[in-house]
Every structure is written in C-alpha cells, then in structure tokens.
C-alpha cells in the first residue's frame, strides 16, 4: 500500500513540470501584448520596446523560461505586471476563497446527491424514483450563476439572511465565514449534486443486479444490511470517480460564482490576468490549479485502492 502511495506521489512531480512548461509557453505565445495595457492607446514603437526591455520580453523565450522555471522551483512565481505584488502572495490570498467555495459546494452536492441517488436506486422504476429522477433532471439544468443571482436576490436582498457580496476569511470568525460562503456553495453544489445523484443511482442499480447481492440475500441478511454494508461499498468506485471530476468542475464553477458574489478568488484573479495579459499571474494560476487537481487525483487513486481490493494488490 505504501509503495502504491509513493509511486503515485513520484508520478505527480513530472506532471507538474509538464503542466508548468505548457503554461509558460502558452503565455509566451499569446498575441496579447502587455505593453498595450500599460501604455494605453496608440503607443510609439519606442515606448513599446522600452516596456518590453523593462519586462525582459525582448530576450529569447527559452531564456525567459529558464529564468521563470528557476524561480518557480524556489517558490518564486514572479510578480503581477500591474500591482507588482508577488504572484505567490496574490494566490495565497485567492486560494482560500476558491477552496472554501469548492469544499462547500462539494459538501452540498454530497448531502443532496447521495441520499437522493440511494433513494432512487432502491425504488428504481417506481413512482418515487420517477419523481426523484425528474427533480434531479430539473435541478441539473439550473445554471449555477443564475441560481447564484436568484439566491442573492431572495436570501440576501429580500430576506437579508446572508451577505450579498464579499468573503470573510475564516480567521476573522467562523460564523461570518460560514454565512459568507453558504449562498455561493449552494449555487455551486446544487447542479453538481444532480450529477452525484445520477451516478449514485445508476451505480447502485448496477450493483443490485450482481449475483453477489443475491448471495448476501441468500444468507438471510436484512435489506438494510445488504445495502448498507455491501452494496454501497461496491457502488462507491464510480461515485468516487464522478465526485473527483466534480471537484474539478466545482473549482472551475467557483470562478463564475465568486464573481457573482464579488469575492476575490482564483477565478477573478485568473480572468483579470487573462483579459489584461499578466503572464506571471496566468502561469501561476495554472500551475497552482494543476497542483490542486493532482492532489485530488492522488486522493482519488488512493480511495480506489481502498474500495477495490484488486487495485490494491496489483
């Protein structure tokens, strides 16, 4: 088991290197020139050249890359062209926002998706299942940023239960932090929960057709025990897979939702950087996001090994 973990962790390192390299060259290839943003309309060629020289953009791309990579290895991801703030600081402030929303959304999606999926599977084909599946299909179609807007209008503006905008760091009070992320987490988690519900339903239905379920029943075990102890664990592998994909989806989805709630998270940083072309920030965003996702993948692989003994042994 330990060997599996070490192997997987070692495989993550080259992946990070590849992703960083790709991220750098994508940035370098971009036709958007930061000089345009800095100098405003109609700069002279001399002004542009001066800015390029100042930013080091006049040197060969490979030189730029090695300089950037050298910094990245030591934890220096450069600085924003506009605010001159170090990228690591910028991201260190933004990441907790996005992670809070992602985890909040994940929690909501699981709380919503697992019970509904299990309920549906156990009543497959009957009225309860059809109603639940219909509801899931409906709420899956609700776009998360529109839901965010409706939640703001209703719960924040109308009822005033939650703040309409802004993020309170957890260090400034758990209660305020929770109040701040409740609505955005809901907006994110609902449609993700629909996906979890569907996957749980179909995985569990599949498992219930298996012969080993009949064996468990033949031993005289109760329905509750057959489902609770055995079938759910068998159904877990596909559900865990979809949950891992959902984490990526939630992370991406929080880009929109945090904007809706005027939170300065990862997405806002990313979009601003893209629209103004702030290369170090864009690269930093990609590298850190990739690292987060690789950690998620690692956790996923480890949970496969837990749920499926065949993987563990080979």
């Amino acid at each position: 088991m330990l060997r599996v973990v070490l192997t997987r962790i070692l495989l993550v390192v080259p992946l990070i290197i590849v992703v960083s390299t790709v991220a750098f060259f994508l940035g370098a290839l971009s036709p958007i020139d930061p000089a345009d943003s800095i100098l405003g309309p109609d700069p002279t060629q001399a002004q542009v050249d001066a800015v390029h020289a100042q930013l080091g953009l006049d040197r060969p791309v490979t030189t730029q890359f090695f300089e950037w990579a050298g910094g990245a290895v030591t934890g220096d991801l450069g600085a924003s062209l506009f605010s001159h703030e170090p990228v690591t600081d910028l991201l260190a402030r933004a990441l907790p926002v996005t992670l809070s929303l992602t985890l909040g959304g994940l929690l909501i999606s699981l709380l919503l998706g697992l019970p509904v999926g299990i309920f549906s599977a156990l009543r497959a084909g009957r009225l309860g299942d059809r109603i639940a599946t219909g509801a899931v299909t409906f709420w899956q179609a609700v776009p998360n940023f529109w839901l965010a807007l409706l939640l703001i209008l209703f719960f924040a503006v109308n009822l005033g239960w939650f703040p309409a905008v802004g993020y309170t760091p957890i260090s400034e009070g758990v209660g305020d932090w929770l109040r701040g992320i409740t609505l955005p987490s809901l907006a994110l988690g609902v449609s993700a929960g629909a996906v979890v519900a569907r996957q749980t339903r179909s995985a569990l239905i599949g498992v219930l057709q298996q012969e080993y379920v009949r064996t468990a029943m033949a031993q005289g075990l109760s329905r509750r025990r057959v489902v609770g102890k055995y079938a759910l664990r068998n159904a877990a592998v596909p559900v865990v897979t979809v949950v891992a994909f959902e984490v990526a989806g939630l992370f991406g989805g929080s880009i929109v939702v945090e904007r809706m709630f005027s939170m300065r998270g990862f997405g806002t940083v990313a979009i601003d950087a893209v629209l103004r072309r702030d290369p170090d920030v864009v690269q930093g965003v990609i590298v850190v996001a990739a690292a987060v996702m690789l950690v998620v993948q690692l956790l996923l692989d480890l949970s496969y090994a837990w749920f499926n003994p065949k993987v563990r042994l080979s």
Binding site: F245, G252, A270
Partner: peptide, 21 residues
C-alpha cells in the same frame, strides 16, 4: 485524463488567453 481532470473553465480560459476573447 490530465485535461479532463483540470477545471474545465480554467482550461478554456487559458486557451482563450492565447487566442483572445
């Protein structure tokens, strides 16, 4: 698998950074 494991919007935004909006 790598591409699919990345947040979809982030991948899209990265490429839009290259191509422009």
């Amino acid at each position: 698998e790598g591409v699919n494991a990345m947040p979809f919007l982030l991948v899209a935004i990265t490429f839009i950074a290259v191509l422009g909006p």
